[in-house]
Deep mutational scan, measured.
Amino acid sequence: MEVRTIKVFTTVDNINLHTQVVDMSMTYGQQFGPTYLDGADVTKIKPHNSHEGKTFYVLPNDDTLRVEAFEYYHTTDPSFLGRYMSALNHTKKWKYPQVNGLTSIKWADNNCYLATALLTLQQIELKFNPPALQDAYYRARAGEAANFCALILAYCNKTVGELGDVRETMSYLFQHANLDSCKRVLNVVCKTCGQQQTTLKGVEAVMYMGTLSYEQFKKGVQIPCTCGKQATKYLVQQESPFVMMSAPPAQYELKHGTFTCASEYTGNYQCGHYKHITSKETLYCIDGALLTKSSEYKGPITDVFYKENSYTTTIK
């Protein structure tokens, strides 16, 4: 009895394709271990004539594949690729409408935090270190965002349907971005203890939790000093293409032309909904596939993004 075979390709990165001759009487799992086709788990399936010449994702289970996976995804987590594939199996079914010149995501599976993050990423200057993220990001900007969303979920250790947080998501993504040249110098002034300067680099240099107003941050924000008295913390120097200011959701007025974009969060910790506000020729609110415009805006804002380049204080 002759062994019926077909020729397929296996890959971990969709760049390096490895030619395989597979036995049609055995499952993919018996031949390769966990195997995925377009995100779908085909591990328990036997090869079919229609699979001839198709590319299958496999887990990096030998040295060659491990090197290829690390170079593309910059992670050695053995569960990463499987999590990416199972997320992709959902995100490829989502709709990605162009809204006001940006790629958004039609609401499904509690994905409003991903839509808000995706919209924000198209408006701030950011370059990702893992080629996987950078490639998928370019495709997302062009309207094909399924891979990018699935990668975000995998890097953030999230599953489809789980509630997510924009600030946490951005923080994970910033860790995989090139923020080497970003720098922030802060000064804390206390009447009792004097003053202390701190220099922050990388992710810490672009994120701040405690106030939404970048102007206020430049002037000074009140913080408790270690001595128990009130101290003032203010920005001395900022070198970065953008800054992200966050605070627990509270009524906040966004003035046209003073910011790049913002995240609105309605609801409580267990259950809520994100919308995205962007400042173009007027203010726009993007909620999944829905767009509304207004000249002014007041609502429960939790993150505001500002364009920056270089700032030095005039406070002496």
Rank of each mutant, 00 (worst) to 15 (best):
E2T: 11
R4L: 12
R4T: 12
T5K: 11
K7G: 12
T11E: 07
T11G: 08
D13A: 06
I15W: 09
V21D: 13
V22I: 11
D23S: 12
T27C: 12
Q30A: 13
D38Q: 12
D38W: 09
A40T: 11
A40R: 13
K44E: 15
I45E: 14
K46G: 10
H48A: 14
S50T: 12
S50L: 13
H51Y: 05
G53S: 11
G53E: 13
T55H: 10
F56W: 04
F56D: 05
P60E: 07
D62V: 07
D63K: 06
T64C: 15
T64S: 12
L65R: 11
E68C: 05
E68A: 05
A69Y: 11
Y73V: 04
Y73I: 03
Y73W: 03
H74A: 06
H74Y: 04
T75H: 06
T75F: 01
T76Y: 10
S79H: 14
S79Y: 08
F80S: 03
L81F: 14
R83F: 05
Y84I: 06
Y84D: 05
M85A: 06
S86V: 11
L88C: 05
T91D: 03
K92M: 10
Y96K: 02
V99W: 12
V99Q: 08
N100A: 12
L102C: 07
T103E: 02
T103Y: 11
T103M: 05
I105W: 03
I105H: 03
C112Q: 06
A115W: 02
A115G: 07
T116S: 09
L118N: 04
L118Q: 06
L119D: 07
L119C: 07
F128C: 02
F128Q: 05
F128A: 01
P130A: 10
P130L: 04
P131K: 08
A136G: 08
R139T: 11
A142F: 12
G143F: 01
A146G: 06
L151K: 05
I152Q: 03
A154F: 02
N157Y: 08
V160N: 05
G161Y: 02
G164V: 06
T169E: 05
L173D: 05
H176T: 04
A177G: 05
A177D: 00
N178I: 01
L179M: 08
S181L: 08
C182M: 04
K183L: 11
K183E: 07
K191Y: 09
T192M: 10
G194Q: 02
Q195K: 13
Q196M: 12
T198P: 01
G202S: 04
V203K: 12
M207H: 07
G210L: 01
L212T: 06
S213Y: 02
S213H: 03
E215G: 04
Q216D: 14
Q216S: 10
K218Y: 01
G220C: 01
G220W: 01
P224Q: 14
T226K: 15
C227D: 01
C227W: 02
G228A: 00
K229F: 09
Q230C: 03
T232W: 11
T232G: 00
Q237W: 08
Q238N: 02
E239H: 13
P241A: 10
F242T: 01
M245W: 00
P248D: 09
Y252E: 06
Y252S: 07
L254E: 04
H256T: 12
H256I: 15
F259P: 02
C261R: 00
C261Q: 01
Y265N: 01
N268W: 08
N268S: 14
Y269G: 15
C271E: 09
H273L: 03
Y274E: 00
Y274A: 07
T278E: 03
S279Y: 01
S279E: 02
S279V: 06
L283K: 00
L283Q: 01
C285K: 10
I286L: 07
L291W: 15
K298E: 12
K298R: 14
G299Y: 00
G299E: 02
P300H: 11
I301R: 01
T302R: 00
V304R: 02
V304K: 00
F305R: 00
Y306H: 00
Y306F: 03
Y306S: 00
E308H: 05
S310N: 14
S310Y: 14
T313R: 13
K316G: 15
K316Y: 15
K316V: 15
